[in-house]
Simulated assay, not measured.
Amino acid sequence: MSTIYGYARVSTTDQDLTIQREALKAAGCTTIRAEKVSGTSIKGRTELRLLLDFIHQGDTLVVTRIDRLARSIADLQSIIIELRQKGAALRCTEQPVDTSTSAGKAFLDMLGVFAEFETNLRRERQLEGIAAAKERGVYKGRKASIDAERVRELHAEGVGASEIARQLGIGRASVYRVLESATD
């Protein structure tokens, strides 16, 4: 007996999964897994991994849109290969994707290219915005999380790198970086 699994994803915790869940239920999904995590990588997506581990021959994985599943061609192809090896299909509710057909496979590849392109454009715009903010003197970057002065003080008192790291709750490599920057 084949099962229709649904997968819903949003990128941030303040986004809502309700519309995706309803669309997946309407598509006949008997099991729906959802998560609030970035789609730029499949790493760390435990609900997706769970579905991919449990899907079997004849089953179908349903998503509302392909960008809910993957935002890079490499990740999308990896997921598709895994589904194909297991004899499972992929279907989208809002896009004509059905990997059980040749046209569906071709359309899937095109959507994957556009999803990755969109991600790359967003990243470029973000970097351009940061560069412009730096030029205006507005962007200062992240505040230092390490008290470099305290590291130097403890080191001057003869405290070792491991103990400094333990006392300040930082990594030993961070202690060495601070100490090396002081000698430059």
Rank of each mutant, 00 (worst) to 15 (best):
E22C: 01
A23W: 06
A23T: 07
A23M: 10
L24Y: 09
K25N: 04
K25A: 10
A26G: 08
A26R: 15
A26E: 14
A27F: 08
A27G: 08
A27I: 08
G28Y: 01
G28S: 01
G28W: 02
C29Y: 00
C29I: 00
C29V: 06
C29T: 02
C29F: 03
T30P: 02
T30F: 03
T31Q: 14
I32K: 03
R33D: 08
R33M: 15
R33F: 12
A34V: 06
E35Q: 11
E35A: 08
K36Y: 10
K36M: 09
K36E: 11
K36Q: 15
K36W: 15
V37F: 03
V37D: 02
S38Q: 05
S38Y: 01
S38E: 01
G39Y: 13
G39A: 14
G39T: 05
T40M: 07
T40Q: 12
T40R: 09
T40G: 15
S41A: 00
S41R: 02
I42H: 08
I42G: 05
I42L: 11
K43C: 03
G44Y: 07
G44S: 00
G44W: 10
R45P: 11
T46H: 14
T46G: 04
T46D: 10
E47H: 13
L48V: 07
R49D: 12
R49A: 09
L50F: 07
L50E: 13
L51C: 08
L51D: 06
L52H: 10
L52A: 11
L52P: 08
D53A: 01
D53E: 15
D53W: 02
D53K: 11
F54D: 12
F54G: 14
I55M: 08
H56E: 15
H56K: 15
H56T: 09
Q57C: 02
Q57D: 14
Q57M: 01
G58W: 00
D59P: 12
D59V: 02
L61C: 07
L61K: 03
L61E: 04
L61S: 04
V62H: 01
V63I: 03
V63S: 00
T64M: 05
T64R: 00
R65V: 03
I66C: 03
I66F: 15
D67W: 03
R68Q: 09
L69E: 07
L69A: 12
L69I: 08
L69P: 13
L69D: 11
A70M: 06
R71M: 00
S72D: 09
S72Q: 15
